Simulated assay, not measured.
Amino acid sequence: MATLLLVRHGRTTANASGLLAGRTPGVRLDELGIEQAARAGGRIGTVPLAALVTSPQERCKQTAKAIAVAQRERGHAVTRAVTEKGLAECDYGEWQGRAIKELLREPLWQTVQRQPSAAVFPGGESMVAMQHRAVAAVRRIDAAVTEEHGPGAVWVAVSHGDIIKSVLADALGMHLDLFQRINVDPASVSVVRYAPDRPYVLASNTHDGDLSWLAPKPGRKRRAKAEGAVVGGGAGPGSADH
């Protein structure tokens, strides 16, 4: 079982001005977002990556590039980021490009907050469809990375807030209607491992902290956790069962 790092793009000009960017072309990181992406890249730079995958949106590609730069600076051999349509931003349809303060007055806003499984954006996609294609993409890529690089491999998927929240909700066994309980900030890193028995969410919405404990240990093979979670919580990173 490989380890997946879910990284949200850094802050954008649209985030800062209160607009729902969606798939609008040309939305890029602002000055703070560039700094955030570099900081996330530095944290991830302690871990050699088996794959780097990104949403097609420019802001995610910029964030992925910062991660790739940090990998090269650490001497890791990582290929250029691969674009994956399944990780694209939600198609917000007619909501795209509108101000959040205006959308707050739309009846659909309350559906998105309270029952997102019933939300269908006018001229866009449903939140259920969004989750299905994102989870399918992540699980497909994770299986491929594990098969090619082994269970100790670590890979990164750079995507968007709602996309990452929906993937985390699936990994946690939460209904989509509860996914608004999850927070995913710009340039945050969340960690998921898809084991044979169930997914394990190792971290969520982290901004700081050492990630080197995720790096494969030379000469040590990570054991599959098909036997289930350790009663009592286990010994944690660095122990023999990591």
Rank of each mutant, 00 (worst) to 15 (best):
M1A: 13
T3Q: 03
L4A: 12
H9A: 08
G18P: 02
G18A: 05
L19Q: 09
V27Y: 04
V27W: 01
D30F: 03
L32T: 15
I34H: 06
A38P: 00
A38K: 11
A40D: 07
R43L: 13
A51R: 14
R59S: 06
Q62R: 06
A64L: 03
R74L: 02
R74V: 07
G75N: 10
E84C: 09
G86Y: 01
A88K: 03
G97D: 04
K101P: 01
T111P: 01
P116Q: 03
P116T: 05
S117Y: 01
V120W: 00
G123S: 12
A129E: 13
A129L: 07
H132R: 15
H132K: 15
R133P: 08
A136W: 00
I141T: 11
V145M: 03
E148L: 14
P151S: 14
A153H: 04
V156S: 02
A157L: 07
H160W: 06
D170T: 06
A171M: 06
R181C: 08
V184W: 02
V189T: 15
V191A: 05
R193K: 14
R198M: 09
R198G: 01
Y200D: 12
A203I: 09
W213L: 13
P216H: 08
A226M: 00
V231K: 13
G233T: 13
G236K: 04
G238R: 08
